[in-house]
Design a protein around this nucleic acid. Structure first.
Lengths: 195, 195, 195, 195
DNA sequence: TTGTAAACGAGACGGTACGTCTCGTCTTAAT
DNA sequence: ATTAAGACGAGACGTACCGTCTCGTTTACAA
C-alpha cells in the first residue's frame, strides 16, 4: 500500500477558492493580487503558490468548482426550440446584468484570452458541460424535424455568440427582446430547408 | 486648422504608439509594462504618464491610429451577399490566424473587457467605422431583396460573433469552411420570409 | 568635472543609517532585517537595496559614519605610557559595559567575521584611524625611551586584544583593575631591554 | 519507574552533527539553515527541532563533540616557556590558516558573540579544557622561576588574544614570526621582576 | 509475542523576510 | 521651459526558511 500520498488541506483549498470568488467581485480584476487572495483566505503565500501559479488559475478553478456544484441543468423543452432557446438567452442576459456574474465572467474571459492552458481548462470544466445540455436539446429538435442535421457546437455558437459579443463589446443594450430576436434568427438559420 | 492647443511632441507620441504596437506583439500582454514602452520609445516615463494613464490606453490609441491609417475599406459586392460575407469572414479568419493580429486583438479585448472607458473608445474609433461598411453592404442587399429589414448592428453581429467567439474560446479550429457555413446560416437567418 | 552622475538622496541615506543604528540596539542582531530598516527609515526596500546589499553593509557604513563624526581623539599623554594606556583600556572597558556600545560592537564583529569585504572596510574606516592615534603615542614613548622600537600595530594589539578577547569570550569580568594589569604587562613587554 | 524517558536515536544525533560540520565548511555561515542540516542528515525537521533550537546550538554541540573526541593534549615542555608557547602559537596560526578550521571557528565566534547561553556552553566544553592545559604549563614555569605568580587565565589571554585578534580583524598576515614575537613579549610581560 | 508509546521520515501548513520588479511621482541636470 | 534620466515610496511578486503540526511507520521497552 502506497498509503496516502498527499496531505493537501481541504480547508486551505476551499478557503482560497472562496476568497478568490469574493475578491473577484469586490476588486477590479487588474488589481486582484495573489497577496490579497492569500490574506483573505488566511492562507500563507507559500501554500497558495504550492497549488496555483497565478491568480488566473485560482479564479478558473474557483469558477469550475462553483459550476460543478450547480447540478447540471437541462434546457427547457416546451416542444418549440425557438421558445426554449429564447428563454435560455433571456436567462443569460439576466445573468450578464448581474454585477457579480459580470465581474466573474470578465475575469474568466481575460484569463481565457491570455493563457491557452486556462482556455483549455475552461473548455473542459465549464464550456463542455454546457454544450452537452445544448446538444441534447438540439437532438430532440432534430428528431422533431424542427432543425436540420447540424454540429451542436456550431448551433450553440449561433445562439450564444451574438449575446456574449454584445455583452463584451457593449455595442448596444442587452435586452430580452434582443435575446428573442437572436433566438428566432438562429432557429431560422438552422431550418431544414437549406444547403 | 492645426489648432494645436498644446505643445505636445508629435515625435514622442508617435514613438510611444509604435513602441506599444511592437511590444504587444513581442511580449505576453500580461508582462507588457509602461516602463518597457517608455524605454522602447526613448521617452521618459514622466512624458508617458503625462498623456496616458495605463498601458491599455496606449494600446487602444495605437490600434485606433493604425486603424485610421488603413483607408476605410468597402465590403466586396458581387451581387450575392452570402458570397461576399463569406469572403469577409474568410479574411477575418485569416487575420486571426496571424500571430501579430492575434496578439493585438487579445490585448485589445482584455482592455475592452476590464475598462468601460476604453470599451467606448474602441467602439467609436474601431468598431463603428467597420459597422458602417457592413451597413452599406446590407443596404444594397436589402434593396436587392436578398434580406429583410434588419438592424445593421444585429446583422453584423450575426455574422461576426460566432467567428470571434470561436477564436476567443478556442472551441474548435477556425477554417474557411466554417466561415462559409456561418455566412450561409446568417444570410438565411436574415432572409425576407420571416418575422 | 565630476558631472555628478548620481542624484542620490541624502535624506534617504541618513534616514537609513540612523534607523540601522537604532535597530541594532533595540533588536537582537540575528533578528535585525532589511525590511525593518527600510520600514523604520521610511524608505522603500528598492532604495535600500539600491545602495546596500545586506544589513551588514548598512551597519558597517552607519558605524563608520558615526566614527567619522567623532573628531579624531588623541591618546592622553601624562608622560607615563603605562598610566596613559591604562586609562585608555579603562575607557574601553567602560564602553564595553554600555549595552548600546556592546550591541553595536557585537553586530560589527559578526559582520567582520563573516564578510572579508566588510572586514577590510572596517579596517580602513574604523580601525586604522584608531591605530594612528596609538602610533602617535607610541612614538612619543619611544623617544622618551620608555619602550623599544616596535611595530605600532603589534603594540596596539598587545594592549587591546586581551580586553576584547575577554569581552568576546566572557571568560571573566571586565574590570578597571584588569585593564590596569593588562596595560602594565604590555608596557613591560615593550620595555627597551629586550630581543 | 518511568525511567528511560527517551528513546533518542543515536543515528539521528550523529547524522545531524556530522551534517552540521560538513555544511559549516561548505556554505557561508549566514546561509547555513536548519532545513539544509536536516536534509543533509536525512533527518526530519521535527526531529531536528526536537533536540536543538537553532543552528547555533547544533554547531556548538558538534564542535564540542569533536573536541571531546580529540584526546586532551598537553602543552610541550622543553623547559623554556617562550619556546614552548611559541610552538603552540605557531600551531594555532597553522590551524587558523586551514580553511576548514577557519570556517568552523568563525561560525563558533558568531554564535558566541550573539548568544550568551552558547557562549557559556563553549566556555565550559571547549575553552576551559584548553585553559587547563595552559595552566599546567604555567605552573611548571612558575616553579622553574621563569614567570611570576599570575592568573593562568590572564596569562593565557596574554598569549592567545593577539593572535586571535589579528585573525579576526585581518589587520596583518598571521605568520610564524609573529607568533614567536607574541610569545616572546608575553613571556617578558610575565617575568618575575615586576609589579 | 504482542502491545504501546515515543521517536522517527516526510512534508504541508501559517508565517516572515528575502531580493526583485513595476508602478506612478518627483527631482535633477542639461538642454 | 521642456525633457531624459532615473531616484524615490509603495507594495506585489515568487522563493526560501522558519518553527509547528499532522501523518503513517518503525523501534524498543514492558507486559
Amino acid at each position: 500500500m502506497p498509503a496516502s500520498p498527499s496531505r493537501r488541506s481541504d480547508r486551505a483549498r476551499t478557503a482560497v477558492l472562496d476568497a478568490a470568488l469574493a475578491l473577484v467581485v469586490e476588486v477590479p480584476y487588474a488589481r486582484l493580487t495573489m497577496e490579497a487572495i492569500a490574506g483573505r483566505a488566511g492562507v500563507s503565500k507559500a501554500t497558495l503558490y504550492r497549488w496555483w501559479t497565478s491568480k488566473g488559475e485560482v479564479v478558473v478553478e474557483a469558477l469550475a468548482e462553483q459550476n460543478r456544484q450547480q447540478s447540471a441543468y437541462a434546457l427547457p423543452d416546451t416542444g418549440d426550440l425557438r421558445t426554449d432557446l429564447g428563454a435560455v438567452l433571456r436567462a443569460i442576459v439576466d445573468e450578464l446584468a448581474d454585477p457579480t456574474y459580470d465581474a466573474l465572467l470578465r475575469a474568466l474571459s481575460v484569463e481565457t484570452l491570455l493563457d491557452p492552458r486556462l482556455r483549455d481548462q475552461v473548455l473542459e470544466t465549464i464550456f463542455r458541460p454546457q454544450l452537452a445540455t445544448f446538444a441534447d436539446r438540439f437532438a430532440v429538435a432534430r428528431e422533431a424535424g424542427q432543425i436540420g442535421d447540424v454540429d451542436p457546437l456550431e448551433a450553440m455558437e449561433l445562439f450564444v455568440a451574438p449575446v456574449f459579443h454584445r455583452w463584451q463589446q457593449g455595442t448596444a443594450p442587452l435586452t430580452h427582446a434582443y435575446a428573442d430576436r437572436v433566438a428566432a434568427r438562429a432557429v431560422k438559420a438552422l431550418d431544414m430547408r437549406s444547403s
